[in-house]
Design a binder for these strands. Sequence first.
DNA 1: CAATATACCTGGATGC
DNA 2: TGCATCCAGGTATATT
Length: 280
Amino acid sequence: MPELPEVEVTRLGLLPHLAGRRVTGVRWSNRRLRRPMPRRLLREWIENGVITTIDRRAKYLLVRMQGGAVLVVHLGMTGRLGIFAAPSPGARHDHLCLRLDNDREVRFNDSRRFGSITVWPADEAGRLEEEFAAGLGIEPFSEHFNAANLLALAEKRRLPVKSFLMDSRIIAGIGNIYASEILHAAGLHPLTPVNRIHRQQWQQVVTTGRAILEEAIRAGGSTIADFLDASGQPGYFQLRLRVYGRGDLPCPDCGRIIEKTVLAGRATFFCPGCQPLPRE
DNA sequence: CAATATACCTGGATGC
DNA sequence: TGCATCCAGGTATATT
């Protein structure tokens, strides 16, 4: 489900419900997520703690506790977070539940269990930054996401540009949907080897990329104003996707038929008119 | 080093 | 209706 915009929309929706609240109880399912549930650390560092704020890095949510501990949540493919009235029936695939001091609960639901929950104790949370820095690439909304940096990262590789955009070690937060959308907006064929891309085209990727991600966050934000009893449907469904999922339909820009192909095992959509593959 | 394959899971859509 | 098959927005690890 979630790429950077959906995670950011989740963060924005959750924040007013969580900031300043004390966690009065923690429960979990017996199922293993991507990693085992850190039961001991949840009891030790999250239960009875006070949430100060929520940050985001790539597709990770960082729920920060007073004193410095951090609850890190990744939504995987199907993970959702929502706020619910405290005595209310749980749902199938609820895997973590934080009871709050206002008779509400935040619940993590994830049918495929590709999501993850980790706890960083206060005395280790300082390493979180370097951990992320080591494993994750450029944030699309940071100043480092610029044409010069992308050009430098790309010049020695022949990776298809879609794989480049989706590689979280290079660029953080762009997933399968937005990769297709950004490349369409930038006029680049998904298979274009990155070392063939010029500075000006990278500038297009930067500009259109930010615009698309921002627009998606805004679209989600408008319907997510109330996150209570979140059905898990942040508003991104209303997003107007221009190529993703539109194989065999006309391109909204030029009318040519949008093609679907598979790249690195992932559905990939592009318009052969707007996104020509450069020839030798 | 780079590209691909596979593994982790459930559920919805599709086809017979 | 039942059953098999394929597909899904992510990531880590193994293998060519």
